[in-house]
């Protein structure tokens, strides 16, 4: 029982940065914009988040710095891909190269420093309940925030007018424009939200996960977040499941090794990726008429005037 609780706790922590970054990218893509620069925004968020927390001594300031850095990075993307109608795939990849270099420059003076990680919630009585106590009532703020955020995103997208308009921009920007909605402005907001989430996800790594900064510490998590959005077929509910599934597979393969189950570790490491491909094929196949991708995803829009 204790082992199960322990595994679930590790899964929650491992999934949180994926969920945060993927939530932002989901909103961005729902508005019709494909930003492949998540990894770049995350790593700059990690460097700035750690720097902010280290200089100020406050985790909250650090998290805000991470978000701000993510937003600034996303604004470069918005300027290019929305303002200048540049191809989004190329811009996103360029953003990642830029971000990796920039985070190295920013983070150079913070390498080797150490901070106190974000505190975990402790509610006397509740946190001590066996099995579920620490899972429900013993996490750090990032974990709760990631869940609140995805619920809020679901609510806004499906239950409010701004959400409807945002999805309309993603599905058919020409009609949305014809109806008088400022497509580019809405998309810019969505991209900035994506940047904030990616920056926060990056900041979580040095603030909550491993309380120090090292160049390249995101180690490809931004790419996994991108995969998750498609894996979830752009639905917030599935995104949560997908993020935890991905986290679970990566943790369980470590546990399987520790328990001495003799499968090549490379095969274990490959499992999450193979699983994504297979699940994607299955869900795409189950739905006649192809995927539920926003119809205008990745396409350039320049309003006629």
């Amino acid at each position: 029982m204790e082992l199960i609780e322990a595994i679930l706790l590790s899964v929650l922590a491992a999934s949180t940065p994926l969920l945060l970054a993927a939530t932002g990218e989901l909103v961005t893509e729902r508005a019709g914009v494909l930003n492949l620069g998540v990894e770049g925004m995350m790593i700059v968020g990690a460097a700035c988040g750690f720097g902010g927390a280290w200089l100020s001594g406050s985790i909250i300031v650090g998290a805000l710095c991470g978000m701000l850095a993510g937003i600034l990075m996303s604004l470069i993307f918005a300027l290019m891909a929305l303002g200048l109608a540049v191809n989004q795939v190329a811009t996103g990849l360029a953003l990642t190269i830029f971000g990796i270099g920039l985070s190295g420059l920013i983070g150079a003076r913070f390498v080797g420093e150490k901070i106190t990680p974000a505190p975990h919630l402790h509610v006397p009585g509740l946190t001590d309940i066996p099995l579920v106590g620490r899972i429900l009532f013993g996490q750090d703020a990032f974990v709760y925030l990631s869940l609140v955020l995805i619920v809020a995103v679901w609510y806004v997208l499906y239950r409010t007018r701004p959400g409807l308009i945002l999805r309309a921009c993603g599905d058919n920007h020409i009609s949305a424009h014809a109806l008088g909605y400022p497509v580019l402005r809405i998309r810019t907001c969505a991209v900035m939200f994506g940047g904030a989430c990616a920056g926060l996800a990056g900041a979580y790594l040095p603030l909550g996960y491993t309380p120090f900064f090292i160049p390249g510490m995101t180690a490809g998590r931004g790419w996994i977040a991108l995969a998750l959005v498609v894996f979830a077929s752009w639905l917030p509910g599935r995104l949560v499941i997908g993020a935890y599934l991905f986290g679970a597979v990566s943790i369980l393969q470590l546990h399987a090794q520790g328990a001495g189950i003799g499968i090549p570790s490379q095969l274990m490491s490959a499992l999450p990726y193979l699983a994504t491909v297979i699940v994607l094929v299955l869900i795409s196949r189950a739905r006649t008429g192809g995927s539920t991708a926003p119809a205008a995803l990745g396409t350039v829009f320049v309003p006629d005037r």
Partner: peptide, 9 residues
Amino acid sequence: FDPGKEADA
């Protein structure tokens, strides 16, 4: 070198 994975392990 993958701090997150090393921590998970």
